[in-house]
Simulated assay, not measured.
Amino acid sequence: MISVATWNINSVRLRLPIVEHYLRDEAPDVLCLQEIKCENDKFPAEALAEMGYKHQAVCGQKGYHGVATVSRLPIREISRHDWQDNGEARHIGVEIVGKDMVVENVYVPAGGDIPDREKNTKFGQKLDFLERMTRWADTVHRPTLIVGDFNIAPLESDVWSHKQLLKVVSHTPLEVETLQRFKDAHGFVDLGREFIQDPDRYFSWWSYRSPDWRKNDRGRRLDHMWASEALAKQATGHRILEEARSWEKPSDHIPLITEFDL
């Protein structure tokens, strides 16, 4: 059995105590972090190694962005794709040594506030990022798990109000269609929705702007774990840890975890 978790941590140094809390309680074999917000030499490598996660692949950047994959199992870094095409650290790919499994860790751009590439450069960059991912997906030939903050909630049940968010970046029809093309390019299986089936409520992000996130519950499912078809058949469980949104100094995202029988 192998378990893989993903979490947009929104600054790994600031939130190291809750990362350690999560690792103690849930003990995933592999943890993929997004938005680590630090350069490689500032990543808390030693603290995580002391917890048993001594195998690490870090693609950091000063200030914003950045992804890292840490593991109790031996991993080998195999790729860093610049799907943003501007040098931002938003992807790292590893293989689990001795297992026929690749884990791709990605942080898709948020896309700004206006869903129009003519009026909002960031929205165009997000769509172009997804198109580059789609061209890459055409070349995937190994059992692959792609995880991370996709910054898109594709299904109506992935948001607190489909009607009110149709023109809000992260749930617009154009973004959903673009993400679907990526999914179809390799035939990825949405593991979250295999185990928590539509139309059941499934959120992974709640804005900091909400004074009482649990009471208002205006969430969105922005974080995903998708697998190649054969690998998806080996998934035995998937769960989220919604209570992590209430931990001290929380991320606005919560962790997801999937277990596989390899």
Rank of each mutant, 00 (worst) to 15 (best):
K119R: 15
T258V: 13
Y64R: 10
L33E: 12
K119S: 09
G219Q: 05
T258C: 13
L23F: 07
K249S: 14
R13T: 14
G66M: 09
D29S: 14
C32Y: 07
L165G: 02
I78G: 04
R132M: 02
P74S: 09
V159I: 07
W83G: 00
K215G: 02
D190I: 02
G187C: 11
H171M: 13
R220T: 06
G148N: 10
F182P: 04
D223G: 11
A230K: 14
R193N: 02
I146F: 10
P173N: 04
W226C: 13
S157D: 12
E248R: 13
S228T: 14
K249W: 04
V189H: 03
R214L: 11
R193H: 04
V169Q: 03
R135T: 09
P250E: 03
G187L: 10
D85W: 01
I78N: 03
L33I: 12
R24L: 12
K37T: 01
R214F: 01
A27L: 05
P199N: 06
E50P: 00
L231G: 08
M101K: 08
L231R: 06
D190W: 01
K215T: 09
G63F: 11
A57F: 05
D217N: 15
K215E: 14
F203M: 10
L165D: 11
I257S: 00
V97P: 01
R245T: 11
E156G: 08
V19L: 14
L231W: 08
K167F: 00
V102D: 00
N120H: 09
L165N: 15
S71A: 14
S204D: 06
L145K: 06
E118H: 09
K215V: 06
R72T: 15
C32G: 14
W226H: 13
A89N: 00
L256Q: 15
L174Q: 15
D138W: 03
D223P: 10
Q164P: 00
G237F: 01
F195S: 06
E177H: 07
T178R: 15
V176N: 05
D184P: 01
L174G: 00
G148C: 12
D190R: 01
R214K: 15
Q56S: 10
S204P: 06
G98N: 04
P74K: 10
G93D: 14
I114V: 15
V189C: 03
T144V: 13
L241E: 12
V106L: 15
K62T: 11
W247K: 10
D190T: 02
G111R: 05
N10R: 13
G66V: 06
D82R: 07
R214C: 03
S3H: 05
N151K: 08
A232I: 06
G87W: 07
N151E: 05
L165A: 06
G112N: 10
H171G: 12
D100Q: 13
D223C: 09
R90G: 06
E229P: 10
R80E: 02
M101G: 05
R214N: 02
N40E: 12
V94H: 08
P109R: 03
G219W: 05
E242S: 11
A227M: 08
A137E: 11
H224P: 12
M1A: 10
L222N: 10
Q125F: 03
S71K: 09
G52C: 07
D85I: 00
P28I: 02
S228W: 05
V103P: 05
S79H: 07
K215L: 13
S170W: 03
E131H: 13
V147Q: 02
H238M: 14
S246Y: 04
